[in-house]
Design a protein around this nucleic acid. Sequence first.
DNA 1: TAATGTAGTTTATCAAATAAACCAAATTTT
DNA 2: AAAATTTGGTTTATTTGATAAACTACATTA
Lengths: 95, 95
Amino acid sequence: MLKELNPLLHSQLRLAVMSILLSVDEADFVYLKEQTNATAGNLSVQLDKLSEAGYIEVEKSFVGKKPRTVCRMTSTGREAMAEYVEALRGYLTGI
Amino acid sequence: MLKELNPLLHSQLRLAVMSILLSVDEADFVYLKEQTNATAGNLSVQLDKLSEAGYIEVEKSFVGKKPRTVCRMTSTGREAMAEYVEALRGYLTGI
DNA sequence: TAATGTAGTTTATCAAATAAACCAAATTTT
DNA sequence: AAAATTTGGTTTATTTGATAAACTACATTA
């Protein structure tokens, strides 16, 4: 039987962010915005959700006088991704 | 760069329906409802969307006095699924 | 004949995604 | 030096989408 697809991960933008953070170790707001073509507002909201779920760590600091938001995946996030992909495979057998 | 994920397919229930129809040649409403654990209302709405997009064919008939709704995937649907999966792979490299 | 089941559709509600508006500071232009 | 623009965001509002609840129509059973 088909498994639940974690709704927090089954969203294009959040999935894109998680995907990038899997491959990149850390990424800042500007980079994620470029890579995903998201608007700043949308990205801000989705990063909050991933952060509240404990899937990513968000670190806000200043570089000179400019704010800088850096994101990293947590081990919880990595596990959630693994499960999500596993569930997804169920939908894709035979392709 | 990450590709767009066809929003019509990037939905748990519609993806489940498409996935089933890829493997099964044809399926009726009741079967799809059982397999997906969807409510009838939700399934009805989502089948309409897939049908309007031309991704599935929906055939309504009567067996005796009972209505029967049978669904089949179209070649357009098959192509859309192939593209969707292809795009999705982009998000999953490194997993 | 009243209740219950089957096979759905339609409408209403709730949640999620996105866009628009805004903020604060820095930089550039005139 | 004042005004406009850019950078790096957040907050709020709007639009869209998913789901649930209510309903229809007919059949069956108690």
